[in-house]
Simulated scan of single mutants.
Amino acid sequence: MAAKEKDQRNRLIAQNKKARHDFHIEDTYEAGLVLQGTEVKSLREGRASLVDGFVDLDNGEAWLHGVHIPEYAQGSWTNHAARRKRKLLLNRVEITKIERKVGDKGYTIVPLSLYFKDGRAKIEIAIAKGKKEYDKRHSLAERQSNREKEQAVQRRLKGFTD
């Protein structure tokens, strides 16, 4: 198999960077998606948005809500609704673990990334707890201080003095 074909089979479609900023990520799971044909074609074009997405558990099944997969341009009357709910493919043990954890106060399930793995659409979901405003500021300050430390080390290695 050629390297280019391998890259096409394993590639990132969409990522929810805001989720890592707004939530403390506890656990992550990989789930398959039940999609229609035009949804897959639209994803292969690299078009999707996870920003407003969330996962709901209903009668022992996991459902993905609010993820925007735009209509396929060449689709006809068979096109899909852009924000319809989609079933996630998880096994019973994973769903039970997730239900137990989400039953605690303050936990939710958010999508982190949508990608193709060996030609199949997969989504990485996470059990997360919302951050407070001061937590967000603290993580930004920590990231900034780490960046400054890295830059100082690089200046030292290049022979510059402070």
Rank of each mutant, 00 (worst) to 15 (best):
H68N: 12
K122E: 06
D135S: 05
L43N: 02
K85S: 08
S139I: 11
T28N: 05
R143G: 05
V55H: 00
I109A: 03
A121D: 00
G37F: 05
Y115C: 01
V102G: 03
G130I: 07
H138D: 04
H138G: 03
D104G: 09
S113R: 12
D118L: 10
R11Q: 15
Y115K: 01
L64E: 00
R120M: 11
I25K: 07
R11V: 09
G106F: 10
E30Q: 12
L35S: 02
I109C: 05
D7Y: 13
E148C: 06
E133F: 08
L50I: 08
D22V: 13
A126G: 09
N146W: 06
L33G: 03
G60Y: 05
A126Q: 04
P70D: 03
G66F: 02
V110D: 00
G159W: 14
P111S: 06
E150V: 03
E71Q: 13
D7E: 14
E133S: 09
R20W: 08
F54H: 13
P70A: 07
G37S: 05
E150C: 04
I13Q: 00
T78H: 09
A31P: 00
A121N: 00
P111A: 04
I125H: 00
E99Y: 02
R47G: 02
S49V: 02
G106W: 09
H21E: 14
S139W: 02
E61T: 12
A3E: 15
D104P: 02
E45K: 13
V55F: 02
R84Q: 14
N146D: 09
L112E: 04
S145F: 09
K132P: 01
G159C: 14
V93I: 10
Q15D: 10
I125F: 01
L157K: 15
Q154W: 06
L50F: 02
K97F: 09
A31Q: 02
I69K: 02
I109K: 03
N16G: 08
K97R: 15
T96I: 11
D104V: 06
F160G: 06
S76C: 07
R44I: 07
F116W: 08
G103R: 13
G130Y: 03
D135L: 05
L35N: 01
R47L: 04
R147Y: 01
A19R: 01
L88A: 01
V67E: 01
D22S: 12
L90R: 01
A62Q: 04
R155I: 01
E26T: 11
R155A: 09
S49W: 00
A81W: 06
K97G: 11
R84M: 12
E30H: 10
K17R: 13
L157M: 13
D162Y: 11
D27G: 02
A48V: 06
R137M: 07
A62I: 05
K122N: 07
E142S: 09
A3G: 12
G66Q: 05
E61L: 10
A19S: 13
H65C: 10
K97L: 14
G130R: 11
K6Y: 14
T78W: 08
E71T: 11
K6P: 01
S76T: 15
R120N: 10
T161V: 14
N91I: 13
R120W: 07
R84I: 08
E39T: 07
E142C: 07
